[in-house]
Design a protein around this nucleic acid. Structure first.
Lengths: 218, 218
DNA sequence: GTCTATAAGTTGATAGAC
DNA sequence: GTCTATCAACTTATAGAC
């Protein structure tokens, strides 16, 4: 509760990387916040719970982020970055089968390793994306439509079955993220907690399922 | 604000269908509650908002349902019924292609007509199904495993491609419900609000996508 | 930078008049 | 059965000592 070693930067060394402590603390807070927001959503989470999860007093969170909303937005920003990358596998000159397989594996890896990120994102979308609506209608939309044109070209060249590319993405996102967002339901139906083995099986299923639907089965 | 016509059953006619008023009021409350819970989740919804949406004073909701939690559970119970039915299309003697197509169309119809129901369900699952976990591990699990055995038989008989039946259900639920739960994202990417036309296109996509993946394309 | 104490407001729920 | 008035508990946020 006291006597924790501290770096008193102000008096001793005025310029020891001015943002070092801030960066470390913010990282601790963001990591804890992702976990807590994932289970209870924005409204269901109190600053008190967030503070307990981070191991810091409530007012310290206010000091770094100001309000609960700003903290929530910061968590979402972190997650969106993860979400948007990974579509890079889809390139005009790539082999469709390998490109889609790589994208699916990337998405399933994200779902497995960062399920809480997926849940925070799902909560935000369920509420109508009050925080990230702009990004969805801007950055996400542009990126997806660019990748959709690549898929359209593959179809035109007869390299895969005709599939509406935008709906292909919707299906792909849904099939992969369901293992994080609805993990409880998956576990209930399987009869066991969803572990590494189940996730491997899920990844194999989604990959072969989508490739067959796209006429790209091996 | 006053002078609303009322049925004063107590003094005039002691036995005019004792539960008539109750049933009507509960129905109004449940319908309003589904809409409000869908957007904000359990924690994000206040009894005040629920009362406003139902056009009744807060204490009347308490009179009929006792607590917010009981009201929420009642909404979920309504929804689960919808969810569980519709799998009836899957019968041993059915033609796999037509049975799956019918189930998909049923699911897409639910998503289109009752998107709020889907969202309330999604919120509950995201939070780890605190209210309906028992039902998922009991009734849902049994029903799904029974239907999975039918699909396994179809596969054994060479009537469709080998697909893990449980994961087929997970994919199917995800692909269909995403149009309700993540409607905001779909609308953002499409560039327009999701209307009837988009939902028809979505339904056609999901049906052909799944049938191809199952080796059942026409 | 960190934390205790507290202000200002909202919440779920109930008592009790009608 | 219905509604107004109210309560105790909890919420976010901040002031100010250290």
């Amino acid at each position: 509760m006291s006597a924790r070693p501290r770096v008193v930067a102000s008096s001793v060394a005025p310029s020891v990387k001015p943002g070092r402590i801030r960066q470390a603390q913010e990282s601790i807070i963001l990591q804890a916040a992702e976990k807590v927001f994932a289970r209870a959503g924005f409204a269901g989470t109190s600053m008190n719970e967030l503070a307990l999860a981070a191991g810091l007093p409530k007012s310290t969170l206010h000091y770094y982020f100001g309000t609960k909303e700003v903290l929530h937005r910061a968590v979402l920003a972190n997650i969106l970055e993860l979400w948007l990358e990974g579509m890079e596998a889809i390139q005009p000159e790539a082999e469709p089968r390998e490109a889609l397989a790589r994208y699916i594996r990337h998405k399933m890896r994200l779902t497995t390793e960062r399920p809480d990120a997926s849940r925070v994102f799902a909560n935000e979308l369920l509420q109508g994306a009050p925080q990230i609506g702009d990004i969805l209608r801007g950055e996400l939309r542009r990126l997806v439509r660019r990748k959709a044109r690549i898929i359209e070209a593959w179809i035109r060249d007869g390299r895969m079955t005709a599939v509406d590319p935008l709906h292909l993405f919707f299906s792909l996102w849904a099939m992969t993220q369901t293992y994080a967002d609805f993990e409880t339901q998956v576990g209930a139906v399987l009869g066991t907690p969803v572990g590494a083995r189940a996730m491997n099986r899920a990844a194999a299923h989604v990959e072969s399922f989508v490739l067959r639907a796209c006429g790209l089965a091996s």
